[in-house]
């Protein structure tokens, strides 16, 4: 039987090692991808079209496809998500309907992307006849992002102190004027954080996109064109062994983008925290 004090020291060491391993894994992945991929990235890689299925050339159409698809997803998910968050926080905080909405929002966030992919495929690609297109992909991704945006916006709106609302109402503001002029501006950094994390998720997503936007390797010219996002391009390059070099390059671009987006989101979050504490 170990003495409690010694046991505690031992446990602490073990837990520390576990934590260290986790952090190490993250840094290892980032380091490994960047080490192999950075050398591939130059202006030409970023700004030219792929040749020979991606064996040579760059990833420009994929960058464009990724950006446009994310934009559509965010443009649809943001009004829906922020609207829902406003309703859930400002209009009714309790009640049966609210708990049902909350439950479905939670569930929606747990649904695997492949299911969203199947759904988007049937609804948008086949049933509504949008075909494999940026529009189908963007709409389906928007649905997938919705829970994230609702949750972060809710948190941000709840963090706005009640006395701001009282002041605005006591100055003759209506509820909606109060929300638009006082609550939303104060909650903006938090809401923006959610939107930015949503952008990151839409960039990472592969399963949904491959089912709804397809994987055509051309520069898209309309919303009804199929496109290949960076994640999908990387998946195809790596899985079919087309070009390891370009796979690393694409992965590096992806990782750097995600890192920058996440860092920006945390910076915004901290501004929000600093503002209210």
């Amino acid at each position: 039987m170990l003495k409690p004090i010694l046991l505690e020291k031992l446990v602490k060491k073990i837990l520390f090692v576990g934590t260290a391993i986790t952090v190490f894994i993250l840094f290892f992945i980032i380091f490994y991808i960047l080490k192999n991929g950075l050398a591939v990235i130059d202006m030409e890689f970023l700004l030219s079209s792929p040749k020979d299925l991606g064996r040579a050339g760059g990833i420009f159409p994929c960058i464009v496809g990724t950006i446009v698809l994310s934009l559509i997803a965010i443009l649809i998910a943001t009004p829906l998500g922020v609207g829902a968050a406003i309703y859930l926080t400002e209009y009714t905080r309790k009640g049966r309907l609210i708990s049902i909405i909350r439950f479905f929002t939670e569930c929606l966030s747990g649904i695997p992307s492949i299911i969203f992919g199947l759904f988007g495929f049937v609804l948008f690609v086949v049933y509504l006849g949008f075909g494999w297109s940026i529009l189908s992909g963007g709409l389906t991704t928007a649905f997938m992002l919705l829970p994230t945006i609702i949750r972060t916006s809710e948190e941000a709106i709840k963090a706005v102190p009640d006395y701001y609302r009282e002041v605005s109402l006591s100055l003759g503001g209506t509820k909606w004027q109060t929300i638009v002029k006082v609550v939303l501006p104060s909650a903006l950094p938090g809401i923006a954080t959610g939107i930015i994390l949503g952008i990151a998720r839409s960039i990472e997503e592969t399963a949904v996109v491959i089912f709804t936007a397809g994987s055509v390797l051309h520069l898209p010219t309309s919303l009804f064109d199929s496109c290949r996002t960076m994640s999908v391009h990387f998946y195809i390059l790596a899985r079919e062994g087309i070009s390891m070099e370009n796979a690393y390059g694409t992965a590096a671009v992806l990782i750097i983008t995600i890192l920058l987006i996440n860092m920006f989101a945390y910076w915004l979050m901290h501004r929000l925290i600093a503002k209210y504490s």
Binding site: Y163, L169, G173
Partner: peptide, 29 residues
């Protein structure tokens, strides 16, 4: 209610200027 609250103005215990300029605070209502 907005009509009522314009007729019956209120000043709170804690001074809570809205996070905007002095001018903007005055002209908010």
């Amino acid at each position: 209610l907005p009509w009522l609250r314009r007729k019956v103005g209120m000043v709170f215990a804690l001074p809570v200027p809205l996070p905007r300029s002095i001018f903007e605070n005055i002209v908010y209502g």
